[in-house]
Simulated scan of single mutants.
Amino acid sequence: MLIFAHRGASKAAPENTLKAFKLAFEQDADGIEFDTYQHESGIIVFHDRTLTRRARETGYLLDTPWQSLKQMDIGDGEHIPSLSETLQCVPSDRWCNIEIKHLYDVNSWVEDVKKAIKQSNISTSQLLISSFNHHWLNAITDLWPEIKIGALTASYELDCTASARTLSAYSVNIALDAVNKQFVQTALQEGFDVFVYTVDEPRDMLMLKEWGVTGIFTNLPNVAFNTLSD
């Protein structure tokens, strides 16, 4: 079962920072997951719409110039990274899940992601794009049909793979509170990988492993590695 570090090793280092991502790989994570916004200056890695929680600043992320954003301390002296900086810290044999929180132009988004990939060592085959906004994902697949799509959901719908089928997705990325064994079996039988978020308790990790889940997103990649290696 694959272990994705949710916003990096985010219990041990500030979330969505290069420090958290590098630590995740040191803790044997198979990949990292992080949040992105399409800013007027490019794609940046951050979770919140506002700066209050992470940067202890007033104002909105997208209203703030990139030059100001990258000077902000978001914990332990770490700064908000760009997508390119983030991908450059990913080893060539590891996975990357880019979650989209905001985009305004799909064409330039795809161009910027492809440019960031070329500046890194990662393989497109181990890149997964997810979002709760399936309209964005659908538009991305129209422009970039070979990219892997994760149909992100927090609910167990009556037709649990409907969105994944519509998007020609690679996986269904579902919340721990919504998933059950039948959901996993159905999705796997229909050819979709299943990734579950956010899984920090060893008991849940072992349950999902028994169900055959493809991978988990966790804030504690070291705990997941030790639990699942036994």
Rank of each mutant, 00 (worst) to 15 (best):
S125D: 11
A175G: 08
C89E: 09
V196R: 07
R165I: 09
I117T: 14
A151P: 02
L176M: 04
D159N: 14
T166V: 08
E99D: 08
D177M: 12
I43E: 01
F25Q: 12
Q67Y: 11
E146L: 01
Q88A: 14
H47I: 12
I44T: 12
A151C: 10
W136D: 07
Y170N: 05
F4G: 01
L206V: 04
D142S: 15
V90W: 00
T161M: 03
S171P: 10
L61Q: 04
V90N: 05
K118S: 09
D200S: 11
F4H: 06
Q119A: 05
E40V: 14
V199T: 12
L188H: 09
K70A: 14
Q126D: 09
T218Y: 06
G42T: 00
N173L: 09
T214Y: 02
E146F: 06
D30P: 02
H6A: 06
S155N: 15
S108V: 11
F217A: 02
T124Y: 06
L206C: 11
N97M: 04
T17A: 05
L18K: 09
S92F: 03
E190Q: 15
Y60L: 15
L2Q: 03
G150R: 00
C96T: 12
E146I: 06
A55W: 04
D35I: 07
K181D: 11
A55I: 02
E210T: 12
A139K: 05
D230K: 13
S125C: 14
I147R: 01
Q88M: 14
S229L: 00
E40D: 14
V113N: 08
L69M: 15
I80H: 03
S163M: 13
L137M: 07
M205T: 08
N173H: 13
W95D: 01
Y104D: 13
T186D: 06
A187R: 00
S108W: 10
R56W: 09
A224H: 06
L137N: 04
G77I: 12
I44M: 12
L103D: 01
S163F: 00
Q182M: 12
A139D: 14
Q67N: 12
A178D: 10
S82N: 11
K209Q: 08
K11V: 04
D112L: 12
G215C: 05
W136H: 08
A55L: 15
T141V: 13
K22G: 01
N16L: 14
Q185F: 10
I140G: 06
P202M: 07
D30K: 05
